[in-house]
């Protein structure tokens, strides 16, 4: 398999049941002009992929909605003048204000740019996708509320769809202590869990996506057929290995990942299997149990669970 193969470069997106559920739910929130929803999930379950999928899917379903995504980073959260969310958005928009430009002016520039972007799409709604919401400080949420209010004054609604670690609950508690309930009401009142692969049935569905769904722009046909053409023609399907993979990954799973397999590691196991099996493609291809064990071991899932759980402890 070539180094640039989409399976290895991870340029593909699988419409897993979890991802479809997020898209459906988020689109409903957009439709209902909700102010905010937060999806929380453990590391590597696929939050960023969901965020990127929304960036792609929402404009398809709602052409008159302007969608922008920002991966939040926390820089200098101690100073309200240099609130990171406004500056990140300004930077992302390519606006370069002069050094002496006041914060209010910077905020006005940002709001004006957002309004122009929205107007270009004839949009009365802006969807802001924030990845890693938990990195934002309290000041950032206040600034988000200000932006929301400024847009609202121009009859533009803003829906903030965020993805965060479950620790976002601590931020909510802090807001409650500071009596910043208006921010909770706007952005943090609807917190929904985002799970990985929780059942054998779901894993079976995910593996079926490798067998059946074709990404025309990448390969023209499914991954299994592309890597194992002879076996695929003879009736081999990757989904048939779902019980073995589920059993092995569940065996090594620990902490929050019991019955919650991260998509990152599932994808790594599948990639490993296809890379190894690709050299033995034949009509009578079988996947031995020890190869599955080796694939799970190579994905480093056991150490991952252990370290993440230890760190959290």
């Amino acid at each position: 398999m070539e180094h640039s193969h989409p399976l290895l470069s991870r340029e593909y997106r699988l419409n897993t049941p979890a991802l479809l559920a997020v898209i459906q739910n988020a689109c409903f929130k957009v439709l209902m002009r909700k102010t905010g929803v937060v999806y929380t999930g453990e590391p590597r379950v696929g939050k960023t992929v969901c965020c990127e999928a929304l960036l792609e899917e929402i404009p398809k379903r709602f052409p008159n909605v302007y969608v922008l995504m920002i991966p939040a980073t926390n820089k200098d959260a101690s100073s309200p003048r240099y609130s990171s969310i406004v500056h990140q958005l300004i930077e992302q928009e390519g606006i370069l204000p002069k050094a002496r430009t006041t914060f209010i002016q910077r905020q006005s520039m940002l709001v004006e740019r957002l309004k122009i972007r929205a107007e270009a799409r004839n949009a009365k709604q802006i969807v802001l996708l924030i990845d890693e919401l938990s990195r934002l400080s309290i000041v950032d949420f206040t600034q988000l509320a200000d932006i929301y209010n400024k847009l609202r004054a121009e009859k533009i609604t803003m829906t903030v769809i965020s993805f965060a670690m479950p620790s976002i609950q601590k931020v909510v508690e802090e807001f409650l202590r500071n009596d910043d309930r208006h921010i909770i009401g706007r952005f943090l009142s609807d917190i929904r869990p985002l799970q990985g692969v929780t059942t054998l049935g779901q894993l079976n569905q995910v593996l079926k996506l490798y067998d059946d769904c074709a990404n025309e722009s990448l390969l023209g046909h499914s991954f299994t057929r592309n890597v194992l053409p002879q076996a695929y023609a003879a009736g081999f399907r990757l989904a048939s290995t779902a019980p073995d993979i589920w059993r092995e990954m569940s065996r090594v799973a620990a902490g929050k990942y019991v019955n919650n397999l991260p998509m990152e590691h599932v994808a790594q196991v599948v990639a490993y299997l296809l890379v190894i099996l690709g050299g033995d493609d034949s009509d009578t291809l079988i996947v031995p149990q020890d190869l599955v064990e080796e694939a799970v071991r190579e994905s480093n899932f056991r150490e991952f669970c252990k370290n993440v759980t230890d760190l959290r402890a």
């Binding site: 390519g94 606006i95 370069l96 002069k98 520039m109 004006e112």
Partner: peptide, 9 residues
Amino acid sequence: HSNFVCLPD
């Protein structure tokens, strides 16, 4: 105006 840059800049 759209780039928020004065003309000399």
